[in-house]
C-alpha cells in the first residue's frame, strides 16, 4: 500500500534531497532514476539574476510533492520565520523542521525543536521534525501534534548509517501508528534497507546519492533497496536462531540410515 500523508499519496518511500549534486542535469537524471515520493527543497537568499527560479523550474517539472526545510536554522524564531516564508513560496503547509544545536555533529536541538514545533502547529503547519532518536523527545513531539517523526540515522552527510538501531527499533515499537522516517546519515542502500526492514515508513536522504561516484545509478540503487526493505518487512522476516536448521528436507535423502 502506498504511503499517504494527509490526502497526498506518495509514489515511493524514498524522500530525496536536491542539494549538492554535481550539476542541475545530474540532479534531474537522479530524480528521474529514483522516482522519489517527496523532494526536499529549501529557501535561500535570492539574487536579481534569479538562480532560485531556474532550480524551481527543474523541480516543478517532475510534479512530485515537495517538502521545504528550515535547514541551517539554530534559533526558534529564525526557524518559524523561514517556515512561514516557505509556506508562501511553495504553497504548502508541510515543513521539515530542522533546528540545529551543535555545529560539529549538526545534531538537532531537542528543546528548540519542540518549542518551534508547538509554534508552527499553532500556525497551521504540518511539521516533519528532524530529531534525534530520543524516545521522550518523540513522545513530546507526538503530544504537540506531530503525525510524522523523523529521527536521524547519523549526523547529516556523515554516511554512517544507523548509529543506534536499538533506539530506532524502540521508536517503531512505541509509535506503531505514527509515520516514521529515518532522516540523515544514510550512506549505503543497505542502511536504508535495514531501516525499512525495521518497519520504518520512509527514508529521507540526499548526500548518499548526490556525492556518489555515479549519482544516477545510486539513486536507482536506493529506490530498489527501500522497496526491498519494505517488501521484506511486510513479508515477515524470520526470527534468528542460534543453531542451523537444514533447508533441504532430509527425508528420503540418498543413503539415509545406511550406516554400517
Amino acid at each position: 500500500m502506498p504511503l499517504h500523508i494527509d490526502s497526498t499519496i506518495l509514489q515511493s518511500r524514498l524522500f530525496l534531497g536536491t542539494a549538492t549534486y554535481p550539476s542541475p542535469e545530474i540532479l534531474r537524471q537522479s530524480i528521474e532514476a529514483a522516482q522519489p515520493g517527496l523532494l526536499t527543497v529549501s529557501l535561500r537568499r535570492e539574487n536579481a539574476a534569479g538562480k532560485g527560479q531556474k532550480f524551481w523550474d527543474i523541480i516543478k517539472s517532475f510534479n512530485i510533492p515537495v517538502l521545504p526545510n528550515t535547514a541551517g536554522c539554530y534559533g526558534v524564531d529564525e526557524a518559524v520565520t523561514t517556515a512561514e516564508m516557505a509556506r508562501e513560496v511553495f504553497e504548502s503547509n508541510w515543513i521539515k523542521l530542522e533546528v540545529l544545536g551543535d555545529d560539529y555533529t549538526l545534531q538537532p536541538n531537542p528543546f528548540a525543536l519542540l518549542d518551534a514545533t508547538e509554534k508552527l502547529i499553532a500556525k497551521g503547519f504540518k511539521v516533519f521534525p528532524y530529531m534525534t532518536d530520543d524516545l521522550v523527545l518523540a513522545q513530546r513531539l507526538a503530544e504537540a501534534g506531530c503525525d510524522i517523526l523523523m529521527p536521524w540515522g547519523a549526523p547529516i552527510g556523515s554516511g554512517r548509517g544507523l548509529n543506534n538501531p536499538y533506539a530506532l527499533k524502540i521508536l517503531r515499537e512505541r509509535f506503531p501508528d505514527k509515520t516514521l522516517v529515518v532522516d540523515a546519515g544514510i550512506g549505503a542502500p543497505s542502511h536504508a534497507a535495514a531501516a525499512m526492514e525495521m518497519g520504518y515508513d520512509a527514508i529521507l536522504l540526499n548526500t548518499a546519492v548526490a556525492k556518489a561516484g555515479d549519482p544516477v545509478q545510486m539513486a536507482r540503487a536506493f529506490a530498489q533497496s527501500i522497496d526491498a526493505g519494505r517488501k521484506a518487512y511486510r513479508s515477515g522476516i524470520i526470527a534468528p536462531q542460534e543453531t542451523g536448521t537444514p533447508s533441504t528436507p532430509l527425508i528420503d535423502k540418498p543413503f539415509w540410515h545406511q550406516e554400517q
Binding site: 534531497g17 536536491t18 542539494a19 549538492t20 549534486y21 540532479l27 526536499t40 527543497v41 529549501s42 529557501l43 535561500r44 537568499r45 535570492e46 534569479g50 538562480k51 532560485g52 527560479q53 532550480f55 524551481w56 523541480i59 521545504p68 526545510n69 535547514a71 523561514t82 516564508m85 513560496v89 511553495f90 547529516i156 552527510g157 540523515a184 540526499n206 548526500t207
Partner: peptide, 10 residues
C-alpha cells in the same frame, strides 16, 4: 530585508 527563493535542500 531578506528576500528568499527556492533553493536546493536536503
Amino acid at each position: 530585508i531578506e528576500i528568499l527563493a527556492p533553493m536546493q535542500g536536503g
